[in-house]
Simulated assay, not measured.
Amino acid sequence: MWLVLCNPGDQAARWVCTGLRERGPTPVELVDAEMLTRSVRSAHSIEEGPARFETTLPDGRVLASDDVDGVLNRLTYAPVGHLVFASVTDSCYAMAEMSALVLSWLQCLAPVSVNRPSPLGLSGPWRSPAEWSLLAAGAGLRVAPLRLSGESPTTARNPVDRTVVVLGEHVFGGEAVPGLVPGCRRLARGAGADLLGVDLELDDRHGARFAGATLLPDLRIAGPPLIARLHTYLTRLPARPW
């Protein structure tokens, strides 16, 4: 079985799930974060041998880590709004425990996941725009200047004219900026991301330059060729060590 894990309302994930099902023959299940955090029964073993879990989702489906052969991981948070108690301290504790549990579940699936979990993010490390810019420069990409505000911790987003999607060694949408394709591949490898969206700012003088990156690109911009390549990618994932 393959899993597509996503946040509620992730239409790109639903599009991918439909495309993978059409290619068959491996069953594909879509599970969003609210289903995981509202499971009606869960068992999680981490004491002996490889960690495993089995959970019954609210719709009755049983999700067991041993049955999963491949995962497209697009989770970014564990919804815990239903864990509200009289005490703020108790509510915060319950929310932290649920987030840790979801991260541990994802770690069970990490060997067969496209975009593995991290303590800094459920589908990979969260990075600030400045951190992405440093990685991009190290990958050999021209980088657009960042506008930083001394009054706010946020960074103004650079304008985006084109987004390319990197899956392994394949870059979708890079036909118009072929000179940047090797750098986009190096950026994904440097970020430890199997799947990465790279935003570009077009420049009449120099072609294009890096404007941002995301672990959650809108995969629909890559079209059916991405579905075909993702199907192949999942099919060729190595067997888990258990």
Rank of each mutant, 00 (worst) to 15 (best):
S104N: 09
W105A: 01
L106T: 02
Q107N: 10
C108R: 06
C108M: 13
C108H: 06
L109D: 11
V114F: 01
V114S: 02
N115E: 08
N115S: 09
P117N: 08
P117V: 10
P117S: 09
G121V: 07
G121W: 04
G121C: 05
L122N: 11
S123P: 04
S123E: 05
S123G: 12
P125W: 02
P125I: 00
P125L: 02
P125F: 00
W126H: 13
R127K: 12
R127Y: 08
S128K: 12
S128I: 08
A130C: 02
A130I: 06
E131P: 01
E131H: 03
W132H: 15
L134S: 11
L134Q: 11
L135M: 13
A136H: 08
A136L: 08
A137Y: 00
G138C: 08
G138M: 12
G138T: 05
G138A: 14
A139V: 09
A139R: 06
G140H: 07
L141K: 10
R142F: 00
V143M: 12
V143Y: 10
V143K: 11
A144H: 15
L146D: 06
L146Q: 06
L146R: 10
L146A: 10
R147F: 07
R147T: 13
L148H: 08
S149R: 14
S149V: 09
S149T: 12
G150Y: 01
G150T: 03
E151N: 13
S152V: 10
S152L: 12
S152N: 15
P153E: 05
T154W: 15
T154H: 15
A156C: 01
A156G: 01
R157Q: 15
R157H: 14
R157L: 15
N158P: 04
V160F: 00
V160M: 01
R162T: 10
R162Q: 15
T163G: 02
T163D: 10
T163M: 11
T163E: 15
V164A: 09
V164P: 10
V164C: 08
V164M: 06
V165G: 02
V165H: 02
V165L: 10
V166P: 04
V166Y: 02
G168H: 03
G168S: 03
E169V: 01
E169C: 01
E169R: 10
H170A: 14
H170D: 11
H170R: 15
F172K: 06
F172I: 05
F172C: 05
G173H: 03
G173Y: 09
G174H: 03
G174M: 03
G174V: 03
G174F: 01
E175C: 01
E175Y: 05
E175P: 00
V177T: 14
P178R: 04
G179D: 14
L180P: 06
L180K: 08
L180W: 03
L180S: 14
